[in-house]
Design a protein around this nucleic acid. Structure first.
Length: 559
RNA sequence: UGUCCCAUGGUGUAAUGGUAACACUCCGGUUUUUGGUAUCGUCAUUCUAGGUUCGAGUCCUAGUGGGACAACCA
């Protein structure tokens, strides 16, 4: 039974190789390093599952480290949201770290660089610096301040730190190689002045380290063995290593950066900064809008942690550009919810059915199975009476043999109830059907075991008794963008592809048992899809988000 | 007119240099009180050209295609 061969992804191959050569198992340590400038999305979920999954697999620590070096964009509320999302996914971090905790150490090391002539203060404008850097195809040239003396550099850097120098007047640059084919090695800026309030250090610091100077050194301080990031940082690796070269103690573990491809999801965006635009420009309500591919949006939509983790593990990790079809994500949530979600009945586009031979004013309570996939889920009672709602699309006056639903003169089963036959219908002056008149077979009650109840009827419909039904608000979601890859068009902005119909709000009618549900509970509206209770639910009205529809092979058949 | 990265079915991911596999999607059958689920099955894959080798998806070279790199962002 246990002979399936374990296949490793390329990240695991790297670790296994390191374990054979340079590392020992006790030294393994990973980290997840978000910048608190927005909410985490499904792409981060992949990274979280990768890093924390590695921690679990190798029994190694995994730190959560906030890369908080830019007070202009970062906020405490994002820190809180990020922690909540990771916890929701079911992971716990070994240490909660902040790059800002290392500001003093980073500063001390910067002093060292200056003293060794490996860093200098540049007092030019950012435009001049950029121009001197050249382009990917032309070499950079030295600026006038590159040869400043150590003491002058020390003095100026001190003024930057104290705030005596005006904001933006100087930067500290590493002195590396202006002719490198790697633009990042052309004397990168490592400190800039920012007279802004930082969410953790307040106004203590007036200088803030740049990403490249911060990240690898933070990894080193935390003794992270493997620092995994996305492909866009591949050119940064050379710099990462150069910085480490300047200060690493050979006795200590030297972290290594390796890169994997970001996971792109079709018909949405996997970029915090672009998602921020959707929020800022009001395309969606908030970061946790159920249409958003954020972890909190998916959660509100009804996605479970298990489904997100299964998705992340299922798609794996690689090094090539990719576009994962959103159907893979939908598969994950259906798979999970099929096992977990109780079945209930709700009608979203109602038409009235009158059971003409059923006594007026009577209500009987029928037993219904909560989830046939889970025998432990138990049963509940649903009311049945003379006037019901069914879906409009479940009735046709005439139809061919492929239409298994209700049609004139034919029988259909009402789920958990009786077999009915359509006898006639009433229309308004426009020809719209307003009432369907049916007869029912009293001996056909579901579960009664009678001959009549056992007879084969091709179609089974869901329904609600009108009198007992509760009206609920139902929010139906469609893909956020009409284009599979909205942000990869050179001549068009992704905003051009926003789907104007990504949200439809309707009123549905549900069986009364739904009143028992709490926020974030998810059920299957039988034959329709999975729906979860939204936090905006009030005493007066329940609000449901459609998580995902059921697979619908009829829809394809019917064109 | 640079440097670097990548290339396996429609999609994503596997395969100590030794029979190209798994999942999703699509399509079809069976079962079914959800046109759901389950289950069975069909179609479909190593970018091109050389080279190394008994043997190449894997190693080498070139080409082709795609991507990244010129923030006081991360």
């Amino acid at each position: 039974m246990s002979e399936e061969k374990e296949t490793l992804n390329f990240i695991e191959h790297i670790i296994e190789e390191d374990l054979k050569t340079t590392h020992n198992k006790e030294g393994l340590c990973f980290r997840f390093p978000p910048e608190p400038n927005g909410y985490l999305h499904i792409g981060h979920a992949s990274s979280i599952c990768l890093n924390f999954g590695l921690g679990l697999k190798y029994n190694a620590p995994v730190n959560l480290r906030f890369d908080d070096t830019n007070p202009a964009k970062e906020e405490q509320r994002f820190v809180d949201a990020i922690k909540k999302d990771i916890s929701f996914l079911g992971y716990s971090w070994t240490k909660e770290c902040y790059a800002s905790d290392y500001f003093q150490q980073l500063y001390d090391w910067a002093l060292l660089l200056i003293k060794e002539g490996k860093a200098y203060v540049d007092s030019q404008s950012s435009e001049d610096i950029a121009n001197q850097k050249g382009t990917p195809t032309t070499l950079g040239v030295a600026g006038p301040y590159r040869t400043r003396s150590v003491s002058e550099n020390l003095d100026l850097f001190e003024q930057m730190k104290t705030g005596d120098a005006p904001e933006g007047a100087h930067v500290l640059r590493a002195k590396i190689d202006l002719e490198s084919s790697n633009m990042l090695m052309r004397d990168p800026v490592i400190y800039r002045t920012l007279h802004k309030h930082h969410h953790r250090t307040g106004t203590d610091w007036k200088i803030f380290p740049m990403y490249d100077w911060t990240h690898g050194e933070s990894d080193y301080i935390e003794q992270i063995s493997h620092s995994f990031c996305t492909l866009e940082f591949l050119p940064h690796r050379e710099l990462y290593d150069w910085f480490l070269d300047q200060l690493v103690d050979p006795v200590k573990l030297r972290p290594k950066q390796r890169e994997f491809a970001r996971r792109n999801l079709s018909h949405t965006l996997v970029s915090k900064r672009k998602l921020a635009r959707l929020v800022e420009e009001g395309v969606v309500q908030s970061w946790d809008d159920p249409r958003m591919p954020t972890i909190s949006g998916l959660r509100r939509r009804g996605y479970t942690a298990a489904s997100i983790k299964n998705f992340a593990e299922g798609i794996g990790v690689g090094k090539r550009d990719n576009l994962i079809d959103v159907s893979r994500l939908e598969f994950s949530i259906r798979e999970d919810l099929n096992k977990k979600a109780n079945r209930v009945m709700a009608v979203l586009d109602p038409v009235k059915v009158i059971i003409t031979n059923y006594p007026e004013g009577e209500t009987e309570w029928l037993e219904a199975e909560n989830n046939q996939e889970d025998p432990e889920a138990g049963h509940r009672q649903v009311p049945f009476s003379r006037e019901l709602y069914i879906e409009k699309e479940d009735f046709r006056e005439e139809a061919n043999k492929k239409f298994f639903r209700l049609k004139l003169g034919k029988e259909v089963r009402l789920k958990n109830a009786y077999i009915i036959k359509a006898e006639g219908c009433v229309k308004d002056e426009d020809g719209n059907i307003t009432e369907i008149h049916c007869s029912y077979d009293p001996k056909s009650k579901s579960g009664s075991g009678t001959q009549e109840s056992l007879r084969k009827v091709k179609g089974t419909l869901h329904w609600v008794a009108i009198k007992e039904a509760i009206p609920v608000e139902v929010r139906l979601y469609d893909r956020l963008f009409t284009d599979p890859s909205p942000d990869t068009h050179k001549d068009k902005d992704f905003m051009d592809f926003v789907n104007p119909d990504s949200l439809t709000v309707i009123t549905g009618y549900a069986e009364p048992s739904l009143k028992e549900l709490a926020v974030e509970d998810t059920v299957q509206f039988q034959r329709l899809g999975y729906f979860t209770v939204d936090p905006e639910t009030t005493e007066d009205e329940m609000v449901f988000n459609r998580t995902v529809s059921l697979r619908d092979s009829w829809a394809r058949l019917a064109e």
